[in-house]
Design a protein around this nucleic acid. Structure first.
Length: 277
DNA sequence: ACGCCCACCTGGAGGC
DNA sequence: TGCCTCCAGGTGGGCG
């Protein structure tokens, strides 16, 4: 569920209230997520200060005393929510709350993930870029390095459809099923086109569109289709601005033709066959 | 290496 | 009410 804008919204939401706090206690209820939590996770976390909260791709990163970094991925259904102080915090956890982190102001962070496609891991901060999860990641789309020529060169030789290419985190990170459809609509590019078929002009439009769509979604606090919530447990509202996603058979906002829904690699894709070539 | 398919897991929605 | 099928913001492993 959460793509780059949703994770970024959580990072921004947590920063003011969580940065510089010290971890006072940790309760782990369930370790068997997509990847099993390390056995020594709680003992590493306790008494560490959360010095910085960052995002890389769709990962939340919590730097701890410049020694370790806590890595959290929300998968499809994960939430990371800051809850107000509660003397019975350990007893009042909900179903699918897998780990709770008590801070020294007695507020506590809860990671909830019904489908358990997410994960929680801990690595030494100076080795974070070499760790298995992060070392394979592609470029951040909101950096200046991600420009027309970068995308043009990156796509050379790839016959996979451009929509699937955009969703491949080994190439470009953060773009999931919603923002891939939205970006391609804005760039007027057919999602079924092969990646390598894009010329420089189209690469330019696509780079611009990706950045615009992601920034607009961050500004709107992310998209909440069903269960996405920010750090304060509130819904985002970018879903009201979708041009094509989940709008099958509705009118295109440009030309008023019907929006099409197709399946690509098992995922729904939405596009306007009239506008997108 | 690339491109494709599948699995992982739970819950909500809709059909009958 | 209940049962069944399909669907969902992600990702990596395994195959040819």
């Amino acid at each position: 569920m959460p793509e780059l804008p949703e994770v970024e919204t959580i990072v921004r939401g947590l920063t003011a209230d969580v940065q510089d706090k010290i971890i006072a206690d940790v309760l782990i209820k369930r370790k068997d997520l997509r990847q099993k939590m390390p056995d020594n996770l709680a003992e590493i976390l306790i008494n560490k200060q959360i010095t910085r909260i960052k995002r890389r791709a769709k990962y939340l990163l919590f730097d701890l005393n410049e020694s370790h970094s806590l890595i959290v991925h929300l998968g499809m259904s994960g939430k990371m929510i800051l809850k107000k102080k509660d003397p019975s915090w350990q007893k009042n956890l909900n179903k699918h709350d897998h780990i709770a982190i008590l801070l020294n102001d007695n507020n506590y962070l809860v990671f909830n993930d019904p489908r358990r496609f997410g994960l929680v891991d801990i690595v030494e901060t100076d080795k974070i870029n070499d760790c298995k999860l992060l070392s394979v990641l592609g470029i951040e789309p909101l950096t200046k390095e991600f420009d027309t020529l970068y995308l043009y060169n990156l796509t050379r030789g790839f016959k996979t459809p451009i929509k699937q290419f955009l969703m491949d985190g080994h190439k470009v990170v953060g773009i999931g099923n919603i923002y891939a459809s939205e970006s391609l609509f804005m760039a007027k590019i057919d999602p079924r086109r092969t990646a390598t078929s894009l010329d420089q002009e189209e690469s330019d439009k696509l780079v611009t569109s990706i950045k615009e769509v992601l920034l607009a979604a961050i500004k709107a606090g992310g998209s909440s289709l069903k269960d996405y919530r920010n750090a304060a447990d509130e819904a985002g509202y970018f879903q009201h601005n979708f041009a094509v996603y989940s709008r099958a058979n509705q009118n295109c906002k440009n030309c008023s033709n019907k929006i099409s829904e197709i399946r690509q690699a098992g995922r729904a894709t939405y596009f306007c066959p009239n506008c997108q070539k």
